[in-house]
Amino acid sequence: MANQNGETSLSVLTSGWIKQNPTFVQVLGLCPVLAVSTNAENALGMGLATLGVLAISNLFISFVRNIIPNEIRIPVYISIIAAFVTMVNLLMHGYTYNLWVSLGIYIPLIVVNCIPLGRAEVFASKHGPWKSFLDGLGMGIGFLGAIMLLGITRELFDAGTIFGYRIWPSAYNVFVVALPPGAFLVIGLYMGLFRYIGKMRSQKKVEGDESK
């Protein structure tokens, strides 16, 4: 059911996938995206960890939004996000040791990623728990998709593999994509692609409106 702004549960869930993608459209939290997306496995681990933190922290922030005074909302939001990141870090250390070691410092750094705090401030502090949860989930899926896209592309061009499975011989490797300049190059190309898709969509919409 839509609210006054025309937001349905489905539109809240899906807006982060492409239209408001946190990485390619909102350009938020690029540091871990660029650093961790060197291969598909790391990207999947980081994406899932961020997705979990986003969805659950949005839900809890929405629950407490009416009892937290405006002056202290940011420290409270950060504390809630930090608590969930610590939980994810502990769980990964205990149950997915190898992934925890390879993701390293970037798991604790989810606390200072702009996306969870941004969604808390922009969405969860103004909406009910259900929609806030969906927003976190949707943005998390968008982030996961974006970092996976980068991880797969970079691993493919750097090592000729995807999730360790060989796609083409190592002789065709373009090593620069594994390095920081390569990360900027790949993300720049994807941003251009997303912008182009957005432009095409709005053009089609305008043409559709005019033909009516």
């Binding site: 937290i68 005074p69 409270v76 608590a83 610590t86 939980m87 502990l90 769980l91 205990g94």
Partner: peptide, 20 residues
């Protein structure tokens, strides 16, 4: 309010720490 929030977070984290 800040104290209550931090205590609740602390208790939850302590629980997860013990669990893990």
């Amino acid at each position: 309010i800040l104290t209550v929030v931090m205590v609740v977070i602390g208790v939850i984290l302590a629980g997860v720490y013990l669990m893990t």
